[in-house]
């Protein structure tokens, strides 16, 4: 069983998935942030592969991408940095997230092979069309044991959600609102109605809610309707302002997960 599947099997609620951009704030910070996140109680992590034109991202993540690229981060360097992470005690599920062009240029098969080698568990490539995945990439992803995570949004039709549920594994990334990342809208009543609607669909896959999750209140709300939630921009802002990652990261993660009874099905 893949680490992502194991996590949801053993801990079906309250999971915190943290996104950070590889190579940000410093090019060499990737592994350190990963370790500190694990120690601080993150349940899974999503490492962003920076891209020059991140159209689905708001300003915070755009700037972290730009900074990471200026720092010299590349797909190749990231995969090198992740080498040996499992041997060094990283046990939480690790996903790579990014736009598809850098992955295509690296070579899909070579990329998947490297991901498997270093111990990556899943991929989130938001601009990869489903038909391209099914016709060209699925077999390769599966060969290397990589789970492919799809997104659904408030605009996604019920039929398409069912289809996504059929062809995904790991979890479904439930985008909370019609927006790019980093929207400040919080979790509105509208969103709660949408979360309830999806919750009531009894999908095969667990769901994590992302976009607009930024603190304990929003995290707890999201956890009521799904198996956990994803924090991105809010964590990037912590990294941006941090003087000391070793204390600022745990402080933030603890504050988000305060009162959270991870592993206990509430």
């Amino acid at each position: 069983m893949n680490r992502i599947e194991k996590l949801f099997a053993s801990q079906p609620s309250g999971n915190l998935n943290v996104y950070f951009t590889a190579g940000f704030p410093g090019v060499g910070d990737t592994r350190r942030i990963l370790s500190v996140l694990q120690e601080s109680g993150a349940d899974l992590v999503e490492i962003g592969m920076p891209y020059s034109d991140p159209v689905a991202d708001g300003e915070t993540i755009q700037l972290s991408n730009q900074q990471a690229l200026e720092n010299g981060m590349t797909v190749r360097l990231l995969l090198e940095q992740l080498e040996g992470m499992r041997e060094d005690g990283i046990t939480l599920p690790v996903l790579l997230m990014g736009y598809i062009n850098p992955v295509i240029q690296f070579g899909i098969e070579r990329f998947c092979e490297k991901c498997a080698e270093v111990g990556v568990d899943g991929l989130i490539l938001p601009d990869m069309p489903m038909d391209v995945y099914l016709n060209e990439y699925k077999a390769i992803f599966e060969k290397y044991g990589l789970l492919n995570i799809f997104l659904v949004t408030p605009q996604t039709s019920e039929a398409r959600i069912r289809q996504i549920d059929q062809v995904s594994s790991g979890f479904i990334y439930t985008v909370s609102s019609a927006s790019v990342t980093g929207s400040q809208s919080g979790v509105s009543d509208n969103m709660e109605a949408y979360f309830e609607r999806i919750d009531a669909m009894n999908l095969r896959n667990p769901r994590l809610i992302g976009f607009g999750i930024k603190d304990n209140v929003t995290f707890e709300k999201a956890c009521r309707y799904a198996q956990g939630a994803i924090i991105g921009s809010a964590f990037i802002r912590v990294l941006q302002e941090s003087q000391d990652l070793g204390t600022d990261i745990p402080d933030f993660i603890h504050s988000v997960k305060a009162n959270n009874h991870a592993g206990i099905d509430v």
Partner: peptide
């Protein structure tokens, strides 16, 4: 059509 799900509909 290489678009994120947000643009798919």
């Amino acid at each position: 059509a290489f678009v994120p799900e947000m643009l798919h509909p």
